[in-house]
Amino acid sequence: MAQSGYERSQQVNGWLFVLPALILLGIFMIYPIIWSLWMSFQVGRGMNFSFGGFTNIMRLTQDPVFLRALSNTLIFLAIQVPIMLILALLFANALNDSKLWGRSWFRTAIFLPCVTSLVAYSVVFRSMFAQDGIMNEMLMALQIIDNPIPWLADPFWAKVVIISAITWRWTGYNMIFYLAAMQNIDRSIYEAAKIDGVPAWARFWYITVPMLKPVILFTTVISTIGTLQLFDEPNLITNQGGPSDATLTLSLYIYNLSFRFMPSFGYAATVSYVIVVLVGILTLIQFLVARDRRA
């Protein structure tokens, strides 16, 4: 009797704590999600639409712009996320050394980019990567290149700029996660390995990385979601996905379909569920890979 009373009070308390968030999510998240799910089966222009069944899904397969946006997004994902996370891991490992001089200064400096204002940083990047901008000037002064690189006017270099920009902004952020996790690892494990003559790289690879697996998984999932939704940088830095759709992402295409082109909300919603499906699949793979290695 007392036990069940305790159980019930635990239940009531459990709901009371999560309820404010769930109510707000229900109103401002789940309702719009259901609306967009329903819209993804509608065809038509603006607010004049009718049920179209799987028409929108068929349209995806024949839409060259969608395929371009999809491949760009996956390229960004496949290149940017590994580069960023590996860099973050290396920096974190270097900064985890308590004998390192200027540790907190380095940490602050590398973290700084992620607290910058989005609009400010895109303006600054655009001016730095201009044809006559400081980037080309520096590279030419260092004799790395002879002629200025058309960073934002060339499809290949524009992708490079976007990848650099996101990496610049978020590497420090991920580094902090790793750094925090590394400080949880028991020092004595390293000391023991050191005495046994295990070299630094091996300590990193066989002790640090396995111990960080949960955090690496977490940052991978979050970065995957972030990159699949990539919108701000190609919108603001490379002029709405330019040049020639070279940096057009799925999110930007959804935006174009809804707000720049003749509004086609049903189709836009369908494209957004492509992202959801991708996140679902990739997250599942990432969890499976993480589990496999443990065995």
């Binding site: 201009a130 006559d132 058309p150 006017a153």
Partner: peptide, 18 residues
Amino acid sequence: TKPVAGWTEYTGSFTSGD
């Protein structure tokens, strides 16, 4: 012709004598 990216670079190219 000279390739430029975006409005600012475009207007900048002829107002600066480039």
